[in-house]
């Protein structure tokens, strides 16, 4: 059994809302509200959910890009939940992030070489020549022509820019990378290229990923285990095949049935599609009881009163639903 590289326990990230003349705090957006999971060494945990469910916030909070409200985070044996940002800097090389928008996360005034080399300047004592070598090596690794080292981000296509972002994340030989929707902004044919690259790098460098995405079919491809988030909470967490074959939570079920199948024959017979009514409630004012009770097709009395506990229903298959009490 491999040991967990990342342990998250009861993570909470609340953003305060200030209002009124004196800007008093009148409430909080509970973007992440009590999330727990482990990520084993060398595995990919997929984190899926609709927009606004807190999956990106969760990813950023795990890396301590925010000062979290509550909870414990352990990365590579070190508790970083309450550490201050200054002492965290030493820890940063082991954990890195690939951002969603390859357009926005690269400084347009820096050359590709200086973008990829910047973490090396910050965290290592390499000489300029060593850095250039390393940058070329990294560009090679992610499939970019090393001759483009002095070009600017706008001269690259979306897929290539995402490769630059990946190279930058790899620069310090991290163990753990949070991929925050790395393919959402890319075209279908380019998505496959980037996902394959991420998988190859994982195999050759032994990386551990937290792969955040709203694309359930892509997560099925890349992840070993999958966590489904809804309104700030993980509602189901299971190994990939168990989750896709027999989802235990009604939300997961609905989410899976809503994904259109690229096969007209299946689309025709798929009349048992579950269409959820209404919208996701506001995380500033979540419903009482289970967060999903306002849209759940199988809602019961107890759901509007009690928040279901997140527990292991089957070995390795966790869910938070009263149906499995």
């Amino acid at each position: 059994m491999t040991r967990p590289l990342v342990k998250v326990r009861d993570l909470k990230m609340h953003f305060p809302i200030y209002a009124g003349l004196l800007r008093r705090q009148v409430g909080a957006v509970k973007a992440v509200d009590g999330v727990s999971f482990d990520i084993l060494e060398g595995e990919t945990l997929g984190l899926v959910g609709e927009s606004g469910c807190g999956k990106s916030t969760c990813g950023r909070a795990v890396l301590r890009l925010y000062d979290i409200t509550d909870g414990e985070i352990t990365v590579d044996g070190r508790a970083i939940g309450s550490e201050d940002q200054r002492s965290l800097r030493k820890m940063r090389p082991t954990m890195q992030m690939v951002f969603q928008d390859p357009q926005a996360c690269l400084n347009p005034r820096m050359t590709v070489g200086s973008i990829i080399g910047e973490p090396l300047v910050e965290h290592t004592a390499m000489s300029k020549a060593e850095r250039t070598d390393k940058v070329r090596d990294l560009m090679d690794k992610v499939g970019l022509n090393a001759a483009f080292i002095n070009r600017y981000p706008h001269e690259f296509s979306g897929g290539q820019r995402q490769r630059i972002g990946i190279a930058r994340a790899l620069a310090l030989n991290p163990k753990f990378i949070v991929c925050d929707e790395p393919i959402a902004a890319l075209d279908v044919s380019i998505q496959a290229q980037v996902v394959n690259l991420l998988e190859e790098l994982q195999d050759s460098l032994g990386l551990t990923y937290l792969f955040i995405s709203h694309d359930l079919s892509m997560v099925r491809h890349i992840a070993d285990r999958v966590a489904v988030m809804y309104l700030g909470k993980v509602v189901e967490l299971a190994p990939r095949d168990a989750l896709y074959d027999e989802p235990l939570h009604p939300y997961t079920e609905a989410l899976l049935s809503a994904v259109p199948e690229p096969d007209p024959a299946k689309a025709g017979q798929k009349r048992d599609r579950i269409v959820l009514q209404g919208d996701v409630p506001s995380p500033a004012n979540p419903p009482e009881g289970c967060n999903f009770c306002t849209r759940c097709p199988r809602v019961m009395d107890v759901c509007t009163r009690l928040d279901p506990e997140f527990r292991e229903v089957k070995p390795g298959h966790w869910a938070a639903c009263h149906l499995h009490d």
Partner: peptide, 19 residues
């Protein structure tokens, strides 16, 4: 190139090389 949520899961995604 597109993965699905049901059926066989390919070990590697097919890609269309180039731009």
């Amino acid at each position: 190139t597109i993965p699905t949520v049901s059926g066989e899961r390919a070990a590697k995604l097919q890609v269309i090389e180039g731009q």
